[in-house]
C-alpha cells in the first residue's frame, strides 16, 4: 500500500479469523468458517473509515479482532499508540493489551444490552476511569459530569439507572463511556441501526461533532449505505470475509469499480419516488463462508463474470490513487454508481 507507515493510525495486514466447525461427541473439527479471510486496510488519524457489507460478511468480526475482543487466527494489526510506538495488537498478550485498551474503545449497536442495567450512569461511565487508576471518587464524578455534558445529557442524570432512558439517550451514554479514557480510535459497530429514524440523525450529528472537537478516528461498521455515505471519508466493502473494494467515499459511491459494490448501491431504496429506477437485483444468496465458491467468491452472482473469475482469486489492487479493488475485470468495466 502506498500510504507510508508514519501517516497511519492503524494498519491491518492479511488479517484472518477462522472459526472451527465442531461436530459429534468428541467435538472434532470438521471444517472452518472463514469469517475474515486475508483482509488488509489502513486508517489514517482523524478520519472516518467505514466497513460495509451484508450480514455475515465479516465486518463485525474484523472490528472485534482490532479491539482484540476476538483473537485473530493470523495477520497483523499495527496500531500507532499515543507515544508514537507501533504495536501489533494481534500478537499482544492479555497483560500487554491492557494499556492499549484506553486508546481503542467501542460504541455498540444495541443500546439496551450494552449498558449494565444494575449500575448507575456514574458507575457505567466511570468504570473505565476507575479500573484505569482514577480511584478518587470526586475526580471521577467530575469527569463523568463532563462526559455526560459532552454527549448532550444532563449531569444531574448520573444517579439514574439506564432503564430511565430512551434508546437514543442510552446510545449517548454508551458514547460517553467510550470517550471516558480519551481513546484515539473509536470502533462504532452499527451505532444507529437500532434507533428510530428521527433519533439516528441526532446520534450521527453528535458523532460528527465529537470527531471534530476531540480529533477522534472512527472505524464505522454498518450495513446501511446511506448512513455510511453520510459519515465516512473512506469506505471498504466486504463480501464473504474478503475486502472487495476500498476507496474515498465519493469515488466509491459515484464510480464503483467492483460489480458487488454496484449491485449494493443499486439495491438501496432511495427516499424519493421520482428516483424509482430499475435496480440490479442479484440472483441467489450470499455464499456460505464455510464452503465458498472457487475463484472470486462473488462470481456465481456476478453479471460480468468471465472464465477467469471462477478459477483465480482476484487480489486487491490500487486501480486509481486511493481506490483499491479486487476484481479481474475492474479495469475494463464501466459501472454505475449513485445517480
Amino acid at each position: 500500500m502506498k500510504a507510508t507507515q508514519d501517516q497511519l493510525l492503524l494498519e491491518v495486514k492479511n488479517l484472518r479469523k477462522f472459526f472451527p466447525i465442531r461436530r459429534g461427541f468428541l467435538q472434532r473439527i470438521v471444517g472452518q468458517v472463514r469469517a475474515v479471510d486475508d483482509v488488509s486496510f489502513f486508517i489514517r488519524p482523524g478520519e472516518t473509515f467505514s466497513l460495509v457489507g451484508e450480514s455475515g460478511c465479516g465486518k463485525t468480526t474484523t472490528s472485534r479482532c482490532i479491539l482484540r475482543a476476538v483473537r485473530p487466527t493470523s495477520g497483523q494489526i499495527l496500531f500507532r499508540t499515543g507515544d508514537g510506538r507501533v504495536v501489533d495488537v494481534a500478537a499482544l498478550s492479555a497483560d500487554e493489551l491492557k494499556p492499549l485498551r484506553r486508546e481503542m474503545q467501542m460504541i455498540f449497536q444495541d443500546p439496551f444490552s450494552s449498558l449494565n442495567p444494575r449500575m448507575t450512569l456514574l458507575d457505567i461511565v466511570g468504570e473505565p476511569l476507575l479500573v484505569n487508576g482514577m480511584t478518587d471518587r470526586a475526580a471521577r464524578t467530575e469527569r463523568v459530569a463532563e462526559l455526560l455534558k459532552l454527549v448532550g445529557l444532563r449531569p444531574e442524570y448520573m444517579r439514574r439507572f439506564p432503564h430511565a432512558f430512551s434508546g437514543g439517550q442510552r446510545q449517548r451514554i454508551g458514547i460517553a463511556r467510550a470517550l471516558a479514557l480519551h481513546p484515539r480510535l473509536v470502533v462504532a459497530d452499527e451505532p444507529v441501526s437500532a434507533l428510530d429514524v428521527s433519533v439516528q440523525a441526532q446520534i450521527l450529528n453528535l458523532m460528527l461533532d465529537l470527531q471534530s472537537e476531540l480529533g477522534l478516528t472512527y472505524l464505522f461498521v454498518a450495513h446501511d449505505l446511506s448512513v455510511v455515505k453520510h459519515i465516512s471519508e473512506r469506505v471498504a466493502v466486504m463480501y464473504v470475509g474478503r475486502l472487495v473494494e476500498m476507496a474515498p467515499t465519493q469515488d466509491l459511491f459515484y464510480t464503483p469499480k467492483h460489480p458487488y459494490t454496484e449491485a449494493l448501491l443499486s439495491a438501496v431504496p432511495k427516499p424519493d419516488p421520482r428516483l424509482r429506477s430499475k435496480r440490479i437485483v442479484l440472483q441467489g444468496s450470499v455464499a456460505d463462508p464455510a464452503n465458498p465458491p472457487s475463484g472470486c467468491y462473488f462470481h456465481p452472482r456476478c453479471r460480468y463474470a468471465a472464465d477467469i473469475c471462477s478459477r483465480a482469486t482476484p487480489t486487491l489492487v490500487e486501480l486509481e490513487p486511493g481506490h483499491f479493488v479486487a476484481c479481474h475485470r475492474a479495469a475494463e468495466l464501466k459501472l454505475t454508481g449513485v445517480v
Binding site: L67, A69, K98, R101, R102, M104, Q105, M106, F108, Q109, D110, S113, S114, L115, N116, E127, P128, V131, N132, G174, R177, A180, L181
Partner: peptide, 13 residues
C-alpha cells in the same frame, strides 16, 4: 452480552 464486552474493553479484571 455487550455490557460484558464493554467492561472487558474498559480494562476490567
Amino acid at each position: 452480552e455487550d455490557f460484558i464486552t464493554a467492561a472487558e474493553l474498559a480494562g476490567c479484571s
